[in-house]
Nucleic acid binder design. Sequence first.
DNA 1: AAATTTTTCAACCGCTGTCGT
DNA 2: AACGACAGCGGTTGAAAAATT
Length: 263
Amino acid sequence: MGRQPCCDKLGVKKGPWTAEEDKKLVNFILTKGQCCWRAVPRLAGLRRCGKSCRLRWTNYLRPDLKRGLLSETEEQLVIELHACLGNRWSKIAARLPGRTDNEIKNHWNTHIKKKLIKMGIDPVTHQLLNKEAKPQQTSSHAHHHSAHIHITDDQGIGASSSEDNNSSTTPTEDSNLLDTICNDESLLNSLWMDDEPPLVDASWTSIPAGESNSNMSSLPSWDNCSWLLDCQDFGVNDFGFDYLNDIELNTMNTLGMGDKTVA
DNA sequence: AAATTTTTCAACCGCTGTCGT
DNA sequence: AACGACAGCGGTTGAAAAATT
């Protein structure tokens, strides 16, 4: 007997999502909320596997996603968190509201890794490469010895030892946050827990609170988004834009509908 | 301008953890 | 305890875009 495949391979579409499929998925989730992902494609009328739907939603269609490259602050936060947590992208993403694990993973592999190598730092261990001969901890727990890395807008990159991290050139709240994360033992411990709250409120919480759906505790209530359902055409002009906040507009833009808002 | 190489990132695959029976 | 079902995670792939020759 054996486990059923997550989807019957026959007739299941793969590859890039079309705008039409996106609309169907968004429509469905806005209507029904997130239920069993396995059932979503059938109920939403999609020829996709549930896994694919979940991925598309969490990585691209979710209304609270930020777009564009990570900011300098976000990059530094990722580096610090990676030094603490290793390749636990979902844990890292949980600390960066509006960013997905996939996005951070991609950014790490395409940008940050190269920067670190360029400045002579091993992106796996966060140690200076010429010190690698020394026996060391595994990457995920190397934070006590990791270099503090500062990447600036002009690609000027510098590394400093843990001892001089107070000499950060940008003494912002964010840099304080970074220090806090890597110096606070209890906070670090909490990072290893499964259900830690985000350090910064996720954008979900900025949505006017409704009664939370029982099985969607991490999501906003869609009750307040029922206005979307009346707009089968999904044109932003069809809505009463005044109450479209950034998050909703973000989703509209994602679906290629936001440009209708420009007069 | 065309061909080739490199980079980016959305999406897939396979594995693991958790929960219910 | 064993098993199946499912969600989620992290590594990898490959098509498209951008850069270079």
